[in-house]
Design a protein around this nucleic acid. Sequence first.
DNA 1: CTACGGATGTCCT
DNA 2: GGACATCCGTAGG
Length: 220
Amino acid sequence: MHNLHDDTEIGLKMTAKSFWETQTTVDIAQGLLGCLLTYDDGQHICGGRIVETEAYLGEADEASHAYQSRQTKSNQALYGPGGSLYVYTMRGLFLLNIVTQAVHTPQCVLIRGLEPTLGLETMAKRRQKSGVALTNGPAKLTQALGLLTRSYNGLYWSQTPLKLNGQKRLLPAEVCVSPRIGVPNKGQWTQAALRFFVSGNPYVSKIHKNTIDYEKRGWQ
DNA sequence: CTACGGATGTCCT
DNA sequence: GGACATCCGTAGG
């Protein structure tokens, strides 16, 4: 993640195309940890710090929707430019990914966990839950944010009601790495260390309770 | 904590 | 028509 930290007298420049297209997807997945993500559904602005991500590595990756260059109407956005959104639905739920790399290189980062900082009441109302269950999963956080549409699928993130800010990024004290969640029977791609999370943060999905850092929540 | 079943859109035959 | 999917909630040990 070398060049993530370099231009950070003012933080990460996520509006720059080069942020998404000149670094590896793995570096971007790690670099997004600690960045602020918010969404305005027109009524309320909600959001928080990204605490968990996964990298999906395109044609070669058996877990990727673009495995073997698969191209369908619903995964088309993966083939777009870095920094555009890939919103995927499964079982009636919405999952938020950000495309990485240049056009026709269908890689992305899945946002899996958020530490809420903005609009907590609204998110609790939408989720009918409180505490970590607000945003400790990829479909939980889209429900909390109110991002329940695919209308921004394929658009560059800054042209949508979604905001990403790496300029006041919190730094993880330690980044943990593990296999991705929900990728069974895919050989080395099931095992691949492509999930990244803030060690000890309570909003990481499926975190072991005895590893939670209640004091600093994994931040420096 | 683990295990299962729900509920739903998309793709392919 | 059927299989399956980047999941979630809850029941039960």
